[in-house]
């Protein structure tokens, strides 16, 4: 048995080029839990996920996923490592040149030697599992936003990964479709014991699915705890986020009127 900590992030700094997005953050994801990573837009939530699959090399600090450093993997270690991780992208990221069925079949065709007839059968059941039966022959452009997310989820879950990373699974969807995706995630976690890290800023879905919440603000971890602990947090910003309090003033600095009248 492996340790109970699936993802371990210690003092990680990350960014693009010269721009630092994440400053020295630390958090853990434990086996079998759904951890919601929340925070305002542009606070670096997606950047964190990208470092966990090795798409982005952190500038400093330590990242361990299944005890391995994702950015230091040898070519032969990478594929077994990535097989244990599923990733759901913000816009689905289905390959536009292939049918939905081929998209879901891709991990099987690439990493297993299953006969084609078995792959077909598995793809059908994987699509049915996320509520999309009889869509295998459609192209991704023929699907609605919510269906595309579901198809992408079914591709991410194709090889029954131990860890599922979701980037904004319910963003841009109507509340009913969004709740449907949340319930699907919850069910997958209950039935398969998949560990999940869900990046979101939808409070409704945090309350519904999250076992634990990590809140980021301006590239730093502001709070780490259960939803209840967050609601009664002593930190104003955390409480405001959960109570959806609008910022007190939109305007920083002097107004145009003041400088037009004052200057003499």
């Amino acid at each position: 048995m492996e340790a109970d900590v699936i993802v371990e992030v210690r003092n990680m700094t990350a960014g693009y080029g010269d721009r630092v997005i994440i400053r020295e953050i630390s958090f853990d994801v434990h086996r079998g839990e759904i951890l919601a990573l929340i925070g305002g837009s542009g606070c670096g939530k997606s950047t964190v996920i990208r470092t966990l699959v090795g798409l982005l090399k952190p500038m400093g600090g330590n990242v361990r996923v299944f005890g391995q450093d994702p950015s230091m993997l040898e070519e032969e270690q990478r594929i077994p490592f990535l097989r244990r991780i599923g990733m759901l992208f913000q816009n689905g990221a289905l390959l536009g040149s292939m049918t939905v069925g081929d998209n879901v079949a891709l991990p099987f065709r690439e990493h297993t030697s299953l006969p084609e007839s078995v792959v077909h059968r598995i793809v059908e059941s994987k699509l049915a599992m996320v509520g999309l039966p009889d869509t295998a022959h459609l192209m991704p452009s023929e699907l609605s936003g919510g269906m595309r997310k579901r198809a992408s989820l079914s591709r991410a879950m194709a090889l029954d990964p131990d860890l599922l990373l979701c980037d904004e699974p319910s963003a841009g969807l109507d509340p009913i479709v969004a709740a449907g995706i949340d319930v699907t995630l919850r069910d997958l976690q209950r039935n398969l014991g998949t560990t999940m890290l869900v990046v979101t800023h939808e409070l409704a879905s945090v309350a519904l699915i999250a076992d634990r919440v990590v809140m980021l603000h301006e590239g730093e971890v502001l709070a780490d705890g259960t939803v209840e602990q967050m609601r009664s947090s002593t930190n104003n910003r955390v409480r405001n986020f959960f109570a959806r309090t609008p910022p007190t003033t939109n305007q920083a600095g002097p107004s145009l009127l003041s400088i037009l009248e004052e200057e003499a």
């Binding site: 090795g54 990535l82 536009g96």
Partner: peptide, 16 residues
């Protein structure tokens, strides 16, 4: 277009 739509990233995370 595949880069913009994160399709290349998706391939990489699938170990392709």
């Amino acid at each position: 277009t595949m880069v913009v739509g994160e399709e290349i990233d998706a391939l990489r995370t699938m170990g392709v």
